[in-house]
């Protein structure tokens, strides 16, 4: 198990800042995929600040670990994470969704540093991650590949094409993470297209499966550590999360998917997330109210 100490307070604070920036960015844009972004905050914090080997000065370092956000619409949280890493300036965050911004509503390889693959049409990222994992093996490189998939996304057939492929090729340098926030776009996953028994499904496809609370940085870090020790097969971490976590006005509801906020909601949410009054005031002033 773990060789590296887990700096819980630091990782939790990074997750909190990612949430704050997601709220601010979407407030500036007027609309955005908030719920499925903030549900990943702790996982992204652990990946980028505990688990992955990265060059904070060079997002293209050839030996870096790769992360693919298959559920591309969650990218506000990824952009916010990149600003924490230092790959993009904080000043870019308010340009989210603007026509000339590298921060498009679905992430594009080549537009924003740190993005490893364009995504948005659901179901494709795990396959792309497989390509990278095969590439690592062909090159004799040690880098690992992490792919975040969604629970609603898991209704896509291509996810299961990829699920069959990776164990057949013994890709133990590949880790899938399921952001199991229980909601698709219009309703609970359970009523749209139930995933259960999801643990058994992945086991039967030949994966090493770990189930965690996706908001516990300790559990996520331990799971990633365990995945590193698994040989001869890929690992999937089923991360139980809450859609809209930290945004109490939509948390764990169907309204968390695509969010437009009033100035009052922005103020209340940022207060809950521990922002100071002047920071809240500035965010409220930049909020685009669509209603």
């Amino acid at each position: 198990m773990s060789s590296k100490a887990i700096d819980v307070a630091r990782l939790e604070d990074i997750a909190r800042r990612v949430r704050i920036n997601v709220v601010k960015m979407i407030a500036c844009s007027g609309v955005g995929h908030a719920g499925g972004a903030v549900s990943m905050a702790e996982i992204l914090a652990v990946l980028y600040f505990h688990e992955m080997r990265l060059d904070r000065k060079d997002p293209t370092w050839p030996d870096r670990d790769r992360f693919v956000l298959s559920k591309g619409h969650g990218c506000p949280a990824l952009y916010a994470t990149f600003s924490e890493v230092g790959w993009i300036p904080d000043s870019l965050l308010p340009t989210l969704h603007q026509i000339d911004s590298p921060l498009q509503m679905h992430p594009e390889l080549g537009l924003c540093p740190g993005i490893e693959m364009s995504s948005g049409p659901l179901g494709q990222g795990l396959s792309a991650g497989i390509g990278m994992a095969i590439g690592a093996r062909m090159r004799g490189k040690e880098f690992r590949v992490y792919v975040m998939i969604g629970d609603g996304e898991s209704a896509e057939g291509q996810i299961w094409e990829a699920a069959m492929f990776a164990p057949n090729h013994k890709l133990d340098n590949l880790v899938a993470i399921l952001d199991y926030n229980k909601f698709a776009l219009t309703d609970r996953v359970q009523s749209i297209m139930p995933l259960e028994p999801v643990y058994d499904k992945w086991v039967s496809f030949g994966w090493h499966v770990i189930e965690v609370n996706g908001h516990s940085v300790v559990q996520v870090a331990h799971a990633l550590d365990e995945a590193r020790s698994v040989k001869g097969k890929p690992t999937i971490i089923i991360a139980h999360t809450v859609k809209g976590r930290g945004m109490s006005f939509v948390e764990d509801t169907v309204n968390a998917h695509s969010v437009s906020m009033t100035k009052a909601q922005v103020a209340a949410t940022l207060k809950e997330l521990g922002c100071q009054p002047n920071e809240i005031e500035q965010a409220v002033a930049q909020t685009k109210e669509l209603h």
Binding site: M117, A128, I130, G131, G135, M138, Q158, E161, A162
Partner: peptide, 23 residues
Amino acid sequence: FVQVGIAEQNLMSIAGGLSTVGF
């Protein structure tokens, strides 16, 4: 040589991902 099986969608996305490693 990578045999993907009868899964053309997987084929195209794997090819895309693999090409990012310089192939």
